[in-house]
Design a protein around this nucleic acid. Sequence first.
DNA 1: CGGAATCCTATTTGATACTG
DNA 2: CAGTATCAAATAGGATTCCG
Lengths: 134, 134
Amino acid sequence: MNESPVSGTSPEVLESHRKYIGQLEKECPVRAAINVLRGRWKPSILCEIAKGPQRYSEMRKALPQVSAQTMTVQLRELEADGLITREVYAEVPSRVEYQLTPLAESLSEVMVELEAWGERYLTERAQSPSEKPD
Amino acid sequence: MNESPVSGTSPEVLESHRKYIGQLEKECPVRAAINVLRGRWKPSILCEIAKGPQRYSEMRKALPQVSAQTMTVQLRELEADGLITREVYAEVPSRVEYQLTPLAESLSEVMVELEAWGERYLTERAQSPSEKPD
DNA sequence: CGGAATCCTATTTGATACTG
DNA sequence: CAGTATCAAATAGGATTCCG
């Protein structure tokens, strides 16, 4: 319709913002790691693929809360981040398989620690009465 | 301020959505942990406070990219999540100090692992030429 | 089957100005 | 000093429809 989409933000500003974020990540690997896992479904998706190579449709069945669009986006991002590989088989009903890279496998070990901490966090939060119980 | 904001989303829907998220967290401690660290500045903020009790103004100086509003919001959320304590001293120029709880200290150990992985991730990403270099 | 395109809502963050 | 209020922008995710 119109050449400048919704807002008037120029491409240069967006570009410099991307560089800015990139710079922040270089200075803070923790933030970089968190950004990789930040998508709401990425831990679950990685968890599923960790069980073995998974097809798109299998994952949709395993995670029915995730819409097709979101699933695709998250998979693409994980792929761009080097955590999963995407293999297309030239078969009649087309078939695509995702699997973890070694980089993602090393992340799995950290996720185990993260899970242990998460359990402690959930326990303590459930005990403290003055906090927001959600 | 007003009970029905801008859009027509009913409070019941929002409420059920909150419960839904809460349920997801209970089923996935990893997600719960990531959500706690999900704010863009929270790792940096925790890092600062890990150096010792910090005042609001000290943290604003240490992290000048973070606006006052955002700093306040992130601190409040960390407090609500039981990661930091907020102590107000009744002095003449008012003084507020934040410090880590034991829960946050245990998270620091996980963050060390996360940092190590983040460094590997950044290295591998810098080497692969076909990925988005940002 | 495995998506892409479009549109829409919700959440997060930032900028600016003001306050106890 | 340590915020709060208000407004605006950016980001993330979902719903629906269409495509090779």
